[in-house]
């Protein structure tokens, strides 16, 4: 197995909590190396410090690579650089939208949280309306918030920008 093939295999490993995109599209896989003996090392980074899916992801990465013929697989976790939703490419954002999850806006950089900052409404992934209301900053997983659309009345998840 070479590096290019390893990336191809990893691109087929879905995120366990958002299975419509892969762990590569989510930006969790940072680096892949294959040594002369065909042993693969995959470097991954967690989305959130306490993300409970990381163990699952590590296992899925290992299983997929072994099934594709890798002789030895090691998975290493790094924290730096800190994961950001800005790493999710446009193609994956479209998949999220089609799945009913509003994709993240641009991540905020630096500065303290301002209490008076008005947050722009998140467009509804179902009908596109911007008549939406934030219901809860915290949703079904650590990485999502819950909104409700005032137009089509659907609740929906938003992938939080961090």
């Amino acid at each position: 197995m070479n590096v290019a093939r390893a990336w191809e295999v990893l691109a087929t490993v879905p995120d366990p909590e958002v299975p419509v995109i892969s762990v590569v599209e989510l930006g969790i896989v940072r680096e892949v190396q294959v040594d002369a003996d065909g042993a693969v090392e995959v470097v991954i980074t967690p989305t959130y410090s306490g993300c409970p899916a990381m163990f699952e992801i590590e296992k899925d990465v290992r299983t997929a690579l072994e099934a594709a013929g890798a002789t030895a697989v090691s998975v290493r976790t790094v924290l730096s650089p800190a994961w950001t939703t800005d790493w999710i490419p446009e193609s994956a954002r479209e998949k999220l939208r089609a799945y009913g999850i509003a994709p993240p806006g641009p991540a905020e950089r630096g500065g303290l949280v301002s209490l008076v900052r008005a947050r722009p409404p998140v467009p509804c992934p179902w009908c596109g309306s911007t008549q939406t209301t934030l219901q809860s900053e915290f949703g079904s997983t650590a990485c999502k918030a819950i909104h409700v659309c005032g137009s089509c009345r659907q609740p929906f998840d938003e992938f939080k920008a961090i």
Binding site: Y48, V78, L79, W83, E137, K160, I162
Partner: peptide, 18 residues
């Protein structure tokens, strides 16, 4: 590295708690 990771989460916490 821990600081860079944690500050993103804690900013969210601060916004919510404040």
């Amino acid at each position: 590295a821990i600081a860079a990771k944690a500050i993103k989460e804690d900013r969210y916490h601060l916004r919510h708690s404040s």
